[in-house]
């Protein structure tokens, strides 16, 4: 009985993670500009990776390896928005510079 519950939790969370990764990728292709694309990828990758890692942790059970997975999960959750912020910040600078150029000419 416990096996069935465990397996269904794992399957559901990995499928959910796959769904959010899929949505993130579709958003990356469909959105019109850099900033909107960052919206789609950051958010969906965060929850997608989270769900897949949680599924793996349940699959692994309570062990040292699931502690590793948990630490990797925290790392991904910290770095993902930071990377998005860095890309968006650089793009914003670029945008301001090109606006100034077009005003000057």
């Amino acid at each position: 009985m416990w096996e069935i519950i465990k397996n269904s939790i794992v399957i559901l969370s990995v499928l959910g993670g796959l769904f959010f990764f899929f949505v993130g990728t579709v958003g990356l292709i469909r959105m019109p500009d850099v900033f909107s694309r960052m919206h789609a990828t950051t958010k969906c990758d965060t929850l997608g990776a989270g769900l897949i890692f949680i599924g793996l942790m349940v699959w692994q059970g309570f062990s040292f390896l699931s502690l590793n997975i948990f630490i990797i999960l925290i790392f991904v959750w910290l770095t993902n928005p930071t990377a998005a912020h860095y890309i968006a910040s650089n793009e914003y600078d670029e945008m301001l510079a090109s606006q100034k150029e077009s005003e000057a000419s």
């Binding site: 900033f35 919206h39 950051t42 965060t46 910290l78 928005p81 912020h85 968006a88 910040s89 914003y92």
Partner: peptide
């Protein structure tokens, strides 16, 4: 800043 990025529909650009 990171929390704003993760909340609905918003993305931190400059801080």
């Amino acid at each position: 800043g990171n929390s704003i990025t993760l909340t609905p529909g918003t993305l931190t650009v400059k801080l």
